[in-house]
Design a protein around this nucleic acid. Structure first.
Lengths: 220, 220
DNA sequence: CGTCTTCTTGACCGTTTGGTCAGGTTTCGT
DNA sequence: ACGAAACCTGACCAAACGGTCAAGAAGACG
């Protein structure tokens, strides 16, 4: 061997390379589509890799195992999914705040129905992988926002109701349009993607919630 | 061959034998539990047979294949699942009829949450096996009951709303308590099985729906 | 009681699936 | 341009799964 100077390259400066960032994003996107449509067990990593435009082996170069991919997708979604509730403002007008919240939730159901379905799927199976998040993050968040609602009730701004049930019912109504999209489309021929239908859904949900709280929804 | 008289037995009189009836029931029950918890692909026939207390081979003696079992379970459930809507009476008082409907739906969510989850699972995956039922039976049923609601609106008994959205929202709110049972239990420590919690849910849903229709829910 | 039918099982088979591995190709800093 | 990382792939493997089959056990009826 010659004693010539060994040129070495910094092993990994920090963060992700362009290629990694791009491929991980493609994988997570494809995985969301598959997991939300076919469930965890119904999805194969080969299908995901195909959808992402790469070989199965290459996918396993980026994520060590199938559960790893699933958890990455879930984590990637959860923050976005819970964001609207976080922004419920105690100082705002109840009718305006709740209307905005409902609109945001419906917007997410319209724009990212797969995320809603994946979340629903996970919870329906007993939430084995996000139990901790529910217990630690969501539980606190719900308690905090329940207090906001209770505060509005105490101030006489809305009718007496159980805040937790109110939150559950808003989740139920808004997520239903994403989770049961197929059924809705079969029955009506439309989905939230249709602007008219989306407006109809918004008005129906908002009217029901506001009048349920003794707030007359303003006519247009 | 001797010419002795062959004693033969009637091959199969009619209907199912006691043993068949019992085992088919055990299988369908076990299958519902598994399919609703783990989804179609996440369920193995070996697990089902184990839960039903028999060997895998024996299960396959009663049902020819996995899809066969799944469809049998689904069919077995669908009638029961849609029954409450059928009984919505045009001649009755809107507040009483809708309250009763909501109570029935919540009762089913409380007593048969697995059925609700299986149905939700099927629809979320695009309803590949019950599309026909949705298109042919449910679509007609929804159209018929929408007409009932429209009739109530025309008679000035309830406020103007889109009947189809109303039906969707009632489904959403009532089924949510079954489908998201895990989440609800994590957040509140309770489920519909708890009588107090169930009463709270009933009141919350009924109050919201009735006031949304301009009907003041009667205090107690 | 004898015999035909129904019921039940363990052994077995082909396919699918998650994951490994050795080796080739591309990228990139120097 | 060069060499070391980073990136990518096809071949391969073990486990799990849906389903078949031959043969025994239990049940029912004359």
């Amino acid at each position: 061997m010659s004693g010539a100077k060994r040129q070495t390259r910094k092993p990994r400066p920090e963060g992700l390379s362009r290629i990694q960032e791009m491929n991980r994003a493609k994988i997570l996107d494809a995985a969301l589509g598959q997991f939300s449509r076919y469930g965890y067990s119904g999805t194969t990593i080969e299908k995901i890799s195909g959808e992402a435009g790469m070989s199965k082996s290459n996918l396993l170069y980026y994520f060590a195992s199938k559960p790893d991919i699933y958890e990455a997708v879930l984590e990637h979604i959860l923050d976005v999914w819970l964001a609207p509730l976080r922004s419920l403002d105690p100082e705002g007008d109840p009718a305006a705040e709740l209307s905005a919240y409902i609109r945001q939730k419906l917007q997410m159901s319209a724009e990212r129905p797969e995320a809603s379905r994946l979340f629903a799927n996970e919870v329906m199976q007993g939430a084995p992988r996000i139990r901790r998040v529910l217990e630690e993050d969501l539980k606190g968040l719900v308690a905090e926002k329940s207090e906001v609602i209770r505060h509005w009730m105490a101030a006489g701004k809305i009718r007496q109701t159980d805040p937790v049930h109110l939150i559950f019912l808003i989740w139920a109504m808004t997520q239903h349009y994403a989770d049961f999209q197929t059924q809705i489309e079969v029955l009506t021929g439309r989905t939230l993607q249709d602007p008219d239908f989306r407006k109809g859904a918004e008005e129906a949900v908002i009217a029901m919630v506001l009048s349920g709280l003794g707030l007359v929804p303003k006519d247009r």
